[in-house]
Design a protein around this nucleic acid. Structure first.
Length: 583
RNA sequence: GCGCCCGUAGCUCAGCCGGAUAGAGCAACGGAUUUCUAAUCCGUAGGUCGAGUGUUCGAGUCACUCCGGGCGCGCCA
């Protein structure tokens, strides 16, 4: 199914050809309602190229434009814009098509890729905290969207389970462990001894050296240290799993840093052999002398003491993902501070001849309400687990106020959908590059541009269908998955009220918006669209009674409700956000 | 010192490859509910897009300079 935008774009290039003009400019949604629904700047672009009067060119193009039953006669306006206004018949027809389409009009991509998405990546023996939200939630949303568009996605959790910190963890385990505390809350105790060791090591060189020795023993395969390591990983994984369950995050694979341990020597050897790396001051280093940007920024891939670092691991990871997983693209959803690191890694991969499409998807920092950076190390960060539970608790409180008659099970379920949804939406609705100001108030506010606002639109729709009963909504919706379980009786649509037409147009735009998300990795444009859709629905809801209206309006409006509900549910689903039936 | 990111309404933010008179939400103020969930809707007010130069039919968007904030730059990840 084609979108209005692509249909009009096609007609535009036909018109240009008929007018003897080359393809030029673009066809976009109108910037303002006054200008109709879509616009093109083709005449402006051509006017500039050929030194001709843009308005005259616009008139010429418009004259050759075959409107069919799609839109009104194109209008030339301003400096030479051509504006298109859809005919309501075309909107009605398209809306009916969408009702029958389980993909809601969204076309699958023509160039399917196998994409490894590296996101989340918490560290073992460190608590997951607010700083992990962005990578996890953003990566998951991108994975869902890419998958929906037809890509083959492999979500990979590159867990930090093999770093230098394990020297400290093992040292702390051996010297500082409180067995009783360990039984009560294993992860908390591991974190405690790690932190304490960290502090001791900072001031005591002997402790530092001891930690280093423990790390070397672990890397050499020492039995005792390996056992400790295994236990630490297992305890941490339990905590991660709990959080992932709450967040509804699912990975296809979880190849942490330790997974690549055996491959590291081979990476260094290969790079030395090919001359990409060289030995410098005892370490193995890659220089980028012919790259002005990186010329003074070499990358160490083997330390003087023979140890490997995360650069080595990341290089081995590229190998694995390309050679074993057969990835066409790898997306790293990792914070902005690592820009330089990935530039270096990508440059090495390029030198080695890899053609895989490597993307570093960066995002801004998480700031406290004081606008200062939330430190990730040895700070008093809110554990993610507590944060999410707090979100649910606060949602629960509001549910008790608004809807106390719900059953206990319903309240728990709804509180989770609202609380978690609020946290995710607060993040995803913002452009990823913008620094994120963490605020309980904002995150959990149930007013304005928030998940609960969108969820409420869905709930209102569901309420209508519950009230409508069997007579109005006899059979399931064409068995479509993701349908709301009922189908409107309408086989034709009659849009008369402005609120109806606006809502229908909005619904038609879903298919135009979703593919754009991957262009720049911006889930916020989908969030923004859904907010506008919910807004259009609420306006419609206020202005247009559904069940109390008479035919044919009643059936038409039920159809609009049905479709709105499905787009909201599916759209929020692409962001990893669930919708409740009541709230 | 070098590099990257950011600077838009009182606050939090949209604004994709340059397009028409820069948009939302919150807060403020004024309205709307015998109603399918008011967790809502409608309206009013609010701006030198950090500053300046340049590129052109056209700049929040591109280039350069400066100011302010953040991050990063050889053995942590």
């Amino acid at each position: 199914m084609e979108t209005f935008q692509s249909l009009l774009a096609k007609k535009l290039s036909e018109a240009l050809a008929k007018a003897g003009l080359p393809t030029a400019g673009e066809l976009t949604p109108a910037t303002d309602r006054r200008f109709g629904d879509y616009q093109t700047n083709a005449a402006l672009v051509l006017g500039k190229e050929r030194g001709e009067n843009p308005r005259a060119l616009a008139e010429k193009i418009a004259a050759h434009f075959d409107v069919g039953d799609l839109c009104e006669t194109p209008a030339v306006a301003g400096a030479g814009f051509i504006n298109f206004t859809l005919l309501s018949g075309a909107i009605e027809k398209k809306t009916l098509e969408l009702l029958r389409d389980e993909r809601l009009g969204v076309a699958e991509t023509k160039s399917t890729q196998r994409i490894v998405i590296d996101f989340g990546s918490p560290n073992v023996a460190k608590p997951m905290h607010v700083g992990h939200i962005r990578s996890t939630v953003l990566g998951d949303a991108l994975a869902r969207i890419a998958r929906f568009l037809g890509h083959e996605v492999i979500g990979d959790n590159h867990i930090g389970d093999w770093g230098t910190q394990f020297g400290m963890v093992i040292y702390g385990w051996k010297n500082l462990l409180d067995r009783q505390a360990m039984q009560r809350n294993p992860l908390a105790e591991i974190v405690r001894v790690y932190k304490e060791t960290n502090e001791r090591a900072a001031s005591d060189p002997q402790v530092r050296e001891a930690c280093r020795q423990e790390l070397v023993k672990l890397q050499e395969g020492d039995k005792e240290n390996t056992d400790i390591w295994n236990e630490c990983v297992a305890f941490s994984m339990q905590d991660f799993e709990h959080v992932y369950k709450l967040l509804d995050i699912h990975y296809d694979i979880q190849c942490g840093e330790s997974f690549y341990h055996d491959r590291l020597p081979g990476v260094v050897e290969r790079l030395l052999k090919s001359g990409i790396a060289e030995i410098s001051e005892g370490a193995v280093v890659v220089f980028f002398r012919d790259n002005p940007e990186l010329a003074d920024k070499p990358l160490i891939i083997r330390k003087r003491d023979g140890g490997f670092n995360y650069a080595t691991t990341d290089l081995a990871t590229v190998d694995y993902r390309v050679n074993d997983l057969k990835a066409d693209a790898i997306w790293y959803v990792v914070g902005a501070p690592q820009i330089l690191h990935f530039k270096q890694i990508f440059e090495i991969a390029r030198r080695e001849g890899y053609t895989v499409d490597l993307r570093h998807i960066i995002f801004g920092s998480i700031l406290g309400e004081d606008r200062k950076l939330m430190k990730t190390r040895s700070g008093e960060n809110v554990p993610l687990r507590d944060l999410l539970e707090e979100a649910c608790k606060r949602a629960r409180k509001i549910i008790e106020e608004k809807n106390p008659q719900l059953t206990e099970d319903e309240k728990i379920d709804i509180a989770e959908k609202i609380g978690i949804g609020a946290v995710k939406y607060a993040d995803l609705s913002q452009y990823r590059m913008t620094d994120y100001i963490f605020s309980w108030e904002k995150m959990l506010s149930l007013h304005g541009n928030t998940a609960p606002y969108l969820q409420n639109a869905y709930v209102r729709i569901r309420s209508i269908f519950r009230k409508a009963g069997d007579a109005a909504v006899a059979t399931p919706l064409w068995g479509v998955e993701g349908g709301t379980g009922h189908r409107p009786v309408a086989t034709t649509l009659t849009l008369t009220e402005p609120a109806e037409t606006n809502l229908a147009k909005r619904l038609c735009q879903f298919a135009e918006i979703v593919p754009q998300v991957l262009n720049g990795f911006r889930p916020n444009i989908l969030a923004n669209y859904l907010f506008e859709l919910a807004n259009s629905f609420h306006t419609f809801y206020e202005a247009c009674p559904v069940l109390k209206s008479s035919e044919p309006a009643r059936s038409s409006r039920l159809a609009l409700c049905e479709l709105t509900g499905r787009v909201l549910k599916h759209g929020l689903g692409l962001l990893g956000i669930k919708v409740p039936e009541r709230m």
